[in-house]
Design a protein around this nucleic acid. Structure first.
Lengths: 187, 187
DNA sequence: ACCTGAACACCGTTCAAGT
DNA sequence: ACCTGAACACCGTTCAAGT
């Protein structure tokens, strides 16, 4: 059920993920969907939860240094969002509406807490980080879609573009890690 | 024309800002709008540009210290977004689609550049900052809307909530300012 | 140049009725 | 419990025709 929705999302994108198309994919009438979700937003929230659950970094892969752990978790979250077309937008809107997809928030806050910051700081900093990740990846995915719509010589321009995106993503994460580190040394 | 759109946005919110309602507000047929904008997104982009243009900090009010200037510009941007219902979401989607609303990006990059950072760093850091601001204010506005829909004793919970929002906003900005400062001293 | 009228191809959601 | 069929109240956009 949610699998069909993810398939539509990945193949056609968020604007084409309609209740009617999902119903058609399941060979069912649109009204039947409302026995499983109260409304469309709830269905998208379920998708968002699944998308961020994908970014499972196995516990043994989490570095013990909190800064490296934060970088690793951030990169894993980015990978999870990039795994589905328009993944960042789905998660972003769900999170904004307070309907879920808040696992990364708690995950990252936990890592920061392990760095010796108080709960309030950890919560706020993880929120800043998640806002950045969602904004960055949304932009990234928007650009991918634009490029695939075939402007002039897409290969030429996108050669090394993935590296650029990864680098500017890492820059943002490092900026926040640095800010955190500094905030502690200034106490 | 754009004023009517802003009025609808502020009174009814983004979901109710439809081409048909805008046409009705202007006492015109929906099809008439397409002589002014090629499509709805373009119309929203015009709105977004206007919303971020509001955040005009007069040049004499910009502090000379780049860190204070960054804080002041960020706060002014937040105020501009908060000035219209769903302002952050309108700007966010327009920026994501690359249709405009990039004035704050250049403004902030300029301020950072005045702090002695190279152009690439300034551009990346201002992008991080704008992602944070949009994410934060979106969340803020979502919550305002939710509260006004009247949960239990809204005054009780929102007493001092504005201060909280302003404080966590300032925290995020300071985190990034600190990160930038640190990135220079570590060169 | 700017607008009307009418249509096209859709939406999300509800609800009685069936099994 | 789960689904159908039909409807309600909308959308964004196009296009011939008018002025």
């Amino acid at each position: 059920m949610a699998c069909a929705a993810l398939r539509i999302l990945d193949n056609l994108g968020l604007p084409d993920l309609t209740m009617r198309r999902l119903a058609a994919e399941l060979d069912v009438q649109p009204s039947a969907l409302y026995h499983h979700f109260p409304n469309k937003q709830t269905m998208l929230a379920e998708l968002a939860d699944r998308i961020v659950a994908t970014h499972g970094l196995s516990p043994e892969d989490v570095p013990e240094d909190w800064r490296d752990a934060l970088r690793a978790e951030s990169a894993a979250l980015r990978d999870g969002l990039l795994a589905y077309r328009d993944g960042a937008e789905v998660v972003s809107s769900t999170l904004a509406l307070g309907l879920g997809a808040d696992a990364p928030l708690h995950r990252l806050a936990g890592v920061i807490g392990r760095g010796g910051f108080d709960d309030s700081t950890a919560a706020r900093a993880s929120s800043v980080l998640v806002h950045f990740v969602l904004g960055h990846v949304s932009h990234e995915q928007q650009r991918m879609q634009y490029d695939s719509l075939g402007a002039l010589s897409p290969e030429l321009k996108s050669r090394g573009l993935d590296d650029d995106q990864a680098a500017s993503f890492a820059f943002g994460v490092d900026l926040l890690v640095g800010g955190l580190e500094r905030s502690r040394s200034r106490t």
